[in-house]
């Protein structure tokens, strides 16, 4: 399949990129790794007149470990994130999820910024970032602003980014809790190289006494027009001891299912997706609780 002709632009700084975006508005599409965009262009789903390459921007693929947060440049590739010691220790769930995206060859090219901006409801990097209360930094030629990632997605394939804006950075706040744990589970039709039918990220922490669960966060992909949190399910488990929380897991899982609004498509039925949310919330919750309270799972 051929790619229709377009005009090519490349930027070496963010400032330069923003100037070009401002000039061309809706005529131009941004390309980073390009693994989603080039596919869509080959399939004639997107036919941009102009393309702006971001890959020549220096120093936007970093992972920085700071005292109160981890900062990830939008051009960081999935293979780099998945294998990075700071992410593996501090945001395990994100390392797990980015390590499951596509194939090795795709993870070597595709970027986290691209995964988020492509805004697939099933994007694997989204549930972990939602569960970790990540923020995103959006830049335009005038200023930069920080927003919670929960406000970023507006529908399948759409975000609140304006044509003249760029997603520049992802910020994961570090928790002060001494103990925290999280996990990601992804349902696929085959064991490798597939997109998520359902993705569930579960995060939990221990309170100061070390006896009760707090800051529970459950985020899900592939089960609504955008990746979503299951706030009511989280509330069911908050402030509970290990024994009580374990007993409450099935109720929380049902509450998580109630928060979904999946569709039936070529890959799975809505009913099946709901059943899997129930199972995966129970599995991830059990795993995380057992880690937090040092129980043998």
């Amino acid at each position: 399949m051929r790619i229709r002709p377009f005009e090519y632009h490349t930027a070496e700084t963010i400032k330069e990129a923003l100037t070009i975006l401002e000039k061309y508005g809706t005529e131009i599409k941004v390309i980073a790794g390009g693994t989603d965009l080039l596919l869509a262009m080959k399939q004639k789903k997107i036919l941009p007149h102009h393309l702006l390459n971001l890959l020549e921007i220096n120093d936007l693929d970093y992972i920085n470990d700071e005292p109160s947060e981890i900062r990830i440049g939008a051009l960081a590739k999935h293979s780099y994130i998945a294998s990075h010691p700071i992410i593996r220790n501090e945001a395990t769930v994100l390392a797990e999820a980015t390590g499951m995206i596509g194939s090795w060859q795709i993870r070597n090219v595709a970027t986290i910024g691209g995964n988020l901006c492509n805004a697939s409801p099933a994007a694997d990097s989204a549930p972990p970032l939602l569960a970790l209360n990540a923020k995103i930094v959006i830049a335009d030629s005038k200023n930069e602003k920080n927003l919670p990632i929960s406000s970023f997605f507006t529908g399948p394939g759409t975000t609140l980014l304006e044509p003249d804006q760029l997603l520049k950075e992802i910020i994961i706040p570090k928790t002060k809790s001494r103990r925290k744990a999280n996990a990601y589970l992804k349902l696929t039709r085959r064991r490798g190289v597939d997109l998520a039918l359902v993705g569930v990220a579960f995060h939990g922490e221990l309170d100061e006494s070390g006896e009760k669960l707090k800051n529970v966060a459950i985020a899900m992909g592939g089960v609504a027009p955008t990746p979503i949190r299951a706030l009511e399910a989280e509330a069911e488990l908050t402030d509970l001891s290990y024994e009580k929380a374990i007993k409450k897991i099935p109720i929380a899982a049902k509450a998580a299912v109630a928060a979904t609004q999946p569709i039936t498509d070529i890959r799975a039925t809505a009913e099946y997706r709901k059943d899997i949310v129930d199972v995966y919330v129970r599995r991830t919750a059990t795993k995380v609780l057992n880690i937090l309270f040092n129980k043998d799972g």
Partner: peptide
Amino acid sequence: PVKSCLILALQ
């Protein structure tokens, strides 16, 4: 390793 069909030569 990368898939050369999904990368623009200019990239």
